[in-house]
């Protein structure tokens, strides 16, 4: 079975996001970029499935600026076998990304698409579900456990839902989006980082796919949320409890 893992290059989760003064967006200039953390979990899971002999090949795909190949190299260093970069000079909406990924799925015919439940930039939590819909295939979102049947025709996926866990069974091919509890991604070792440089990375452009990627949304403005002000310092537990009771009324 082949597993396709879409990965996104996003602002590193440790970087403070700055809104541009002209409200046109978020400042990406000279900002550290990394793989979307949820996608790292997806790559890790795919590589583990390969290590267990469930998957034969792990293919990472990214859509974005040419520098997204760094993100793909990270996936390759973690254990993906090859990578596909689809370059785009515009920021694509989830629906457009899902359409492009559908085209990749049509070509690659993976048994499973494993991907992060959301990217930490747009926070849409949409592409996996949209891709499943466009493929007319089942979806298993927010996965905390993925078990593929011995004959590789089905997967049992435990999902993190409000208030607990739900386990569903989906026929493969299916789209699985991953949540935090699934695994702890590995750090790529130096030898693996070196090896990753020699793994195949195929570059295409959005135009190669003939897919309608026109935006549906116009961003009117991007603003900073209201800032929180520092409050007061307390000196004792008694003072804190009294204030929480009487002043804030929260206990």
């Amino acid at each position: 079975m082949k597993i396709l893992v879409p990965v996104k290059r996003v602002i590193d989760y440790n970087v403070k996001v700055r809104v541009k003064p002209d409200q046109s967006g978020v400042d990406l200039a000279n900002v550290k970029m990394s793989m979307n953390p949820f996608d790292e979990i997806a790559v890790e899971e795919a590589v583990r499935l390969k290590e267990k002999g469930v998957a034969e090949e792990v293919v990472a795909v990214s859509i974005g600026v040419p520098q997204a190949q760094d993100t793909l190299r990270t996936a390759l260093a973690m254990g993906a076998d090859r990578a596909i970069l689809i370059t785009s000079d515009q920021d694509l909406e989830p629906l457009a990304v899902a359409k492009l990924l559908k085209a990749v799925v049509d070509q690659e015919q993976p048994g499973m698409v494993l991907m992060g439940k959301q990217a930490i930039d747009g926070d849409n939590n949409a592409v996996g579900q949209m891709l499943a819909a466009l493929l007319h295939r089942p979806q298993a979102t927010f996965a905390s456990k993925v078990e593929v049947s011995a004959d590789k025709t089905k997967a049992q996926v435990t999902r993190e839902v409000d208030g607990g866990l739900q386990t569903i069974e989906v026929d493969l091919p299916a789209v699985v989006t991953v949540d935090l509890r699934l695994n702890e991604p590995r750090y790529a070792s130096l030898p693996n980082i070196m090896k990753a440089k020699k793994k195949p990375l195929d570059t295409k452009s959005v135009a190669d796919f003939g897919v309608d990627t026109a935006p549906r949304l116009t961003v009117l403005k991007v603003t900073e949320p209201p800032k929180r002000q520092a409050g007061i310092k307390v000196e004792s537990a008694a003072d804190l409890v009294a204030r929480l009771k009487n002043e804030a009324g929260v206990i």
């Binding site: 602002i11 996001v17 809104v19 978020v26 930039d121 926070d123 403005k221 991007v222 603003t223 900073e224």
Partner: peptide
């Protein structure tokens, strides 16, 4: 967006 660090209209 960005976990609430920015708001987009």
């Amino acid at each position: 967006i960005y976990a609430g660090n920015a708001l987009e209209t």
